[in-house]
Design a protein around this nucleic acid. Structure first.
Lengths: 335, 335
DNA sequence: TAGTATAATGTAAGCGCTTTCATTTATAGC
DNA sequence: GCTATAAATGAAAGCGCTTACATTATACTA
C-alpha cells in the first residue's frame, strides 16, 4: 500500500502539500494539485484512515447503540442513519444493547473505547442519571426515542402521548366506548406516554380507562396473546383494543382468530409503530405511524451539525405520529 | 484523557511494560502487573484504540456489507454477526449495498478505506470476476449466501437447491401435481438454485415445470401479487404455488384473498426464508427455514479463525434449509 | 562462585498521517 | 528595480501506541 510519503516523492513535493490536496480546503496551486493527484492515481494511493484519525484526533466514526439489530423497527432506524452518514463519508459502528442496563452501559463503553466522534443512543434501560453523567464527559451524543428534560437539546423523539391519543380518539370517533388497553412494559417511558395519550382521549369523551380492561404486556407477540386472554377472562365487555405496539396487536389478533373471534367484526384492534409487517397481517393492521427512518436520519444530521460543524443543517427534534387506518378497525357492532 | 505515558510514569515503569500488561500475553512479573493495573485504574485510563491500530496495523474492525439494513432477513444476519464479534472485542462497521453493482463496489471501497481487518460480504450484483480480483488484494473477506467455486473456501452459503427441492417435494407429497412457481429475479443465483431444486423434485415424480405456470418476480411483495395475477390469467389449473421467498408468498396470499380465493382451500402457498413475519401472515406461512442468524455467526467465526488466528474455532460452510410446515399448505381439493 | 540460560524490563524507532511555524516564491505598488 | 505583502510550499514535531532489540535482574548449574 502506497503511503503519503511515496506520493510526495513521486510528485516531487512535500508531505504537507500532499496532505493539503487530500483535505482540499487549504490553498495549493492548481499545478501542484494536479501533479499530486496524478501521482496518487498512478500509485493507487488510498489514505490510511487510521493514521488520519490519530493525527487529527477525528475518527470519522459514529457509534450507534440500539436495542436490537433485527426487528422491523431498528432496521428502519439504522437504514436512515447509515444513509445519511455514508453520504457524508462518515462510518457507523453498531452495537446492540438488548434493553438491559448492564449491556447498554457496556455497549456505550465499548463504543467510547472505539474513539467514536459521537454516539447515537437508543437506550431504554440505562438511568437518566447515567446519561446526565455521560453528557459531562467529552463525548457528544444524541438520544433517540427518549425525552430527558435535562438533556432536551440532544433528544430526538416521537410525541408518544399524541400517538396514544390519536389511536384512542380514532376508536372513539368510530363509536367505540368500551376500549381495552394492552400496554407495553410500564417502566418504559414510551409505553407510559402512549397510555397517557389514551387516557387524555378518553377524558375528552368523559370516560376513564377501565382498570379491568388494562393489561401490561411486553411489546412482543406473546404479550398480545396473553393480553387478549386476560381481557376475555375479565368478562367485561369491550369492542376495541388499543395495543402498545404492532407486535402485540398482531399477537392479539392471532389469538382472537384462534379463539373463533373475527377482527374487526367482533372487536377492533389498533396498533402502534406501523412496522413493515403491519401490512401483512390479516386483517391489515390499523396503526399509528412512527417515522422511525426519518428520525434516524435526523439523529445523524444532529451529529453532522453539532459535531462536524455542518451548520447549514436543520434539525427537527420532536416528530409527530399519525394515524394509518387500515382494516382492523371498524364501527362497533350494534348490540 | 490519560495516555499510556502517564500510566507508565505513575506506575514507575516504561511504556513497553504498560503496553505489555495491556496485551497481557507477554510475561510481566505479577508485582509490576499489579502496579500498572492500579495506575490505570487510578487514572481512569482507556487505551486509544486508534493509536493501537496504527501501531499494530490491526484495526480490530470488520466491515460488513449487506444489501439492506432493514428487512427481516438482514436484521437477523447482522444480529448474529455482531454478537459474535462483540464477544471477541472486535467491532463491526456496516454499509448497505442496495443490490446494485455500483453501490456494492463503492461500499467495499468505503470499507477498505476504513482499514477493516476483514470483510463480510453479502453482495448480489457485483461480478464473480470482481470478487476474484478482490481476493488477490491484501484484504481477507468471506462471502455470505454466494457460491463461487474459485473462492469456495470463503463462501458460506445455504443449499438453495435443496431448499427448493424440499418445498416442492412437500407439495408433491401432499398430493399436488399442478404446481405454479413464482421465482425471484433469475439473474440472482439463489433464485435460480431454488428453481432448480423445484425442477429436481418434479422430475422425481416424472413431472416437468409448466412454463405457463412460471412467473419471474422481484423477491418483493408486489412480485407475489403480480405473479398471482399472471398465474390466474394463464387459465391453467394449479393447486399450489411455490414462491421464491416469503415476501412474494405473502403478496400472493394477500392478492388471492382480495380476489376471493382462500388459502389453502383453493390453493396452497409455500414460501422460502422463514423470515419473522411469516408467522404473522394469515394463514401462517409454510416455508423453508433459512438459518440466517447462524450463518451470520459463522461468517464472523470464519473471520475470527482466518484473520485473528483463533484456530480452535470450527467453521461450517454449507448450511441446510429445512421445511417449516404451517397453515398455508394443505392437500389439494378433490376436483 | 563464576558462568550461563532465562525472565523481566527498558530504549527507541516507527505506524502514516496532520498541522504549526518557518521559509521560499510570486504579486503588486511605487 | 526594490520593498511590502500575500500565496505556496516545506520542515519537523507530534498523535498514542507496538515491538524488535538491548539491557539488566534473577535463577540455575556444576
Amino acid at each position: 500500500m502506497a503511503t503519503i510519503y511515496q506520493v510526495s516523492e513521486l510528485a516531487g513535493v512535500s508531505l504537507a502539500t500532499v496532505s493539503r490536496v487530500m483535505n482540499n480546503n487549504v490553498r495549493v496551486s492548481e499545478a501542484t494539485r494536479q501533479k499530486v493527484l496524478q501521482a496518487m492515481e498512478q500509485l493507487g494511493y488510498r489514505p490510511n484512515s487510521i493514521a488520519q484519525s490519530l493525527a487529527s484526533s477525528r475518527s470519522n466514526s459514529i457509534g450507534i447503540l440500539v436495542s436490537e439489530l433485527h426487528g422491523p423497527f431498528y432496521g428502519e432506524m439504522l437504514t436512515g442513519i447509515e444513509a445519511e452518514f455514508r453520504a457524508a463519508g462518515k462510518h457507523v459502528i453498531i452495537a446492540a444493547g438488548h434493553s438491559e442496563r448492564a449491556t447498554e452501559e457496556d455497549g456505550i463503553d465499548f463504543l467510547r473505547s472505539r474513539n467514536c466522534d459521537a454516539l447515537i443512543l437508543h437506550v431504554e434501560a440505562v438511568s437518566d442519571q447515567f446519561l446526565i453523567d455521560l453528557s459531562k464527559k467529552e463525548i457528544p451524543f444524541v438520544l433517540l426515542n427518549r425525552q430527558l428534560p435535562a438533556l432536551a437539546d440532544r433528544c430526538i423523539s416521537l410525541d408518544n402521548e399524541l400517538g396514544g391519543y390519536l389511536a384512542t380518539r380514532y376508536l372513539l370517533e368510530q363509536g367505540h366506548r368500551h376500549i381495552a388497553y394492552i400496554a407495553g412494559p410500564m417502566w418504559k417511558a414510551d409505553a407510559r406516554d402512549r397510555f397517557h395519550g389514551h387516557q387524555r382521549a378518553l377524558a375528552e369523551y368523559q370516560l376513564t380507562a377501565d382498570q379491568g380492561l388494562f393489561f401490561e404486556g411486553d411489546f412482543r407477540e406473546t404479550g398480545g396473546s396473553k393480553g387478549l386472554d386476560a381481557l376475555l377472562a375479565s368478562n367485561r365487555p369491550f369492542s376495541a383494543i388499543v395495543c402498545g405496539n404492532d407486535e402485540m396487536a398482531s399477537g392479539a389478533m392471532t389469538a382472537a382468530r384462534e379463539l373463533g373471534y373475527e377482527v374487526p367484526a367482533d372487536f377492533s384492534v389498533i396498533g402502534f409503530d406501523n412496522v413493515n409487517f403491519a401490512y401483512y397481517t390479516y386483517p391489515k393492521l390499523s396503526t399509528i405511524d412512527y417515522p422511525v427512518s426519518a428520525m434516524g436520519r435526523m439523529a445523524a444530521r444532529w451529529v453532522l451539525k453539532q459535531v462536524y460543524q455542518q451548520n447549514s443543517i436543520e434539525v427537527q427534534q420532536i416528530f409527530n405520529p399519525h394515524l394509518i387506518p387500515r382494516d382492523s378497525v371498524a364501527e362497533p357492532a350494534v348490540s
